[in-house]
Design a binder for these strands. Sequence first.
DNA 1: CTGAAAGCGCTTACAG
DNA 2: CTGAAAGCGCTTACAG
Lengths: 342, 342
Amino acid sequence: MTTSANGRRKPPTVHDVAREAGVSRGTVSRVLNGGHYVSATARKSVDAAIKKTGYVVNRHARSLITGRSDSVAFLLTEPQEKFFEDPNFNVLLRGCTEHLARHDIPLLLMLASNEDERRRLTRYITSGHVDGVLLVSSHSGDPVTAELLDAGIPLVACGKPLGFGGKVSYVAVDEREGAHEMVRHLVSTGRRRIGMITGPLDTPGGTERLAGYRDVLAESELPYDPALVVEGDYRRSGGEAAASQLLDQAPDMDAVFVASDLMAQGVVSTLQRAGRVIPDDIAVGGFDDSPAATAVSPALTTMRQPFDRISAEMVRVLLAQIAGEDTAAVILPTELVVRDSA
Amino acid sequence: MTTSANGRRKPPTVHDVAREAGVSRGTVSRVLNGGHYVSATARKSVDAAIKKTGYVVNRHARSLITGRSDSVAFLLTEPQEKFFEDPNFNVLLRGCTEHLARHDIPLLLMLASNEDERRRLTRYITSGHVDGVLLVSSHSGDPVTAELLDAGIPLVACGKPLGFGGKVSYVAVDEREGAHEMVRHLVSTGRRRIGMITGPLDTPGGTERLAGYRDVLAESELPYDPALVVEGDYRRSGGEAAASQLLDQAPDMDAVFVASDLMAQGVVSTLQRAGRVIPDDIAVGGFDDSPAATAVSPALTTMRQPFDRISAEMVRVLLAQIAGEDTAAVILPTELVVRDSA
DNA sequence: CTGAAAGCGCTTACAG
DNA sequence: CTGAAAGCGCTTACAG
């Protein structure tokens, strides 16, 4: 290890390792890349030389030749206030970072806030600066998704991306089944005027959970009343607004299924301000089991999304795709978590 | 742009641009790097050629020769549950990502969860894979900080890192002054038995806000009563526990200054469960003005930390340091935000 | 101002 | 199994 002018040590290279080990640089490289076609003795002396010199591969040099960057983007293509407000997002981001770290792959966080940023990032990504992208963008027909898909960039979305006909890999939860379970729970506790606050209806979480709600209404021989359904936006403030609207439209409502815990947080406070007691007057069922679920009082009965598994699967599918495998969809189950609100 | 075997287009290189523009690759490179020592005509034809070919620089090749990576790490060195639970963290992460994006610098998110990860990441960073690091780690004497400092890696911390005697750059808020303002506000509204829930006392936010609290007690000729002070951990659950303890130790308390909004959220619910009305019985003052502040009812009176500016300054100072400037500390003011809780 | 050339640190056919 | 050699795409003294 030599010291250069600016005082920063110049790190050892394959050359230094080769010299130390008494082999050629090619052999060092072979050891570094899996140790195939290398004798046990050579491998051993290279390993020792690596340890001794403190050698760490220069990823830029490697990338220059392999054409891979050994890094992955985590891309948010929507107004991110929403995501950053939602504790689910954190759990997902953390999970992806940790799972990638196990493969020694850094995660580049990218926020496409506006048209300019979208263009810049699309260009960055399609220029091969990352090997693949973990995509968080639930709205249908997202233009970035289309461009990346078009450029052949390995891609896996969180939640089924609408409008791409099965051409993009994704990891999602069984939305409809999750809704079934929650609404059945509400019905089983004697609720008959069950309202719903949906997610945005151009997202699968929006449409599918609503569909599940209607399924159970039908199977329970409960009438579907449009006055009991309001579209939300997955934000706390949206939950508050939607709850007020429901209170107006259907004052006799005895339960609400809310498509996210964050919205449910807003719903709870609006209902309480209106003098309703939860769950006695109105039961509230959430979705996610995010940290928001236990930050409210009463704590939320909700459908747990396995975000730890979701992030693990996203990483697994993406890495497989980078390695050349075909696209894939992974559907994970949700789980009813009964607490105090329903 | 040629198409290679695997169907992915092979991007144009300086060579293609040079050919298109009728100049040498050196000239193309000069245009790319600021356009010095290049004639206006040459510059123009290179620009045109870049546009025409859709050229994007290959950062790996550039990094290999410049020795810079043109990327920056955002490093969390603590059990991150805490950070990921705290909405402040999101705001900071987002701000840093956006400010770096303006310089076309990607942010690599790194989580040092355990000893192994700490070692791996330290190695990664000190091997020159990033040009600098934005550090979030408030506890004193953090070993990663020491190692990075030692390796001469440009570094800027969020909040003053304790135990490094001014050798590390940081951006922080005037903690003590912030505490002054809040406690004076409490005093000015007639409170006399003012409790405090501090942050961890090995962090500057912990000690300084406590010091500020004591300052104002003294200037107001209010006695300092240890029974009124409990150490918290910046978590909601910690706020709940601390509030219970205060309720036991000092049932006559008529205000609490809580060192973070997230803890204050827990405090509010504990106090309310105990039948106290806020602010009538007890005033609650927070710190941060995080999204948590308006997620509670009553909404929190709090000290606003300018996270947008904090992240902007962190990025600015880091970039300056990467460019060779000396370390620097930036202290930003807080601002009292009066809502309903005090 | 500009071109030819060297070289950054690595990987990978190619011979052997 | 192993070494010598070419080359990934760029930047930067060096001459001119």
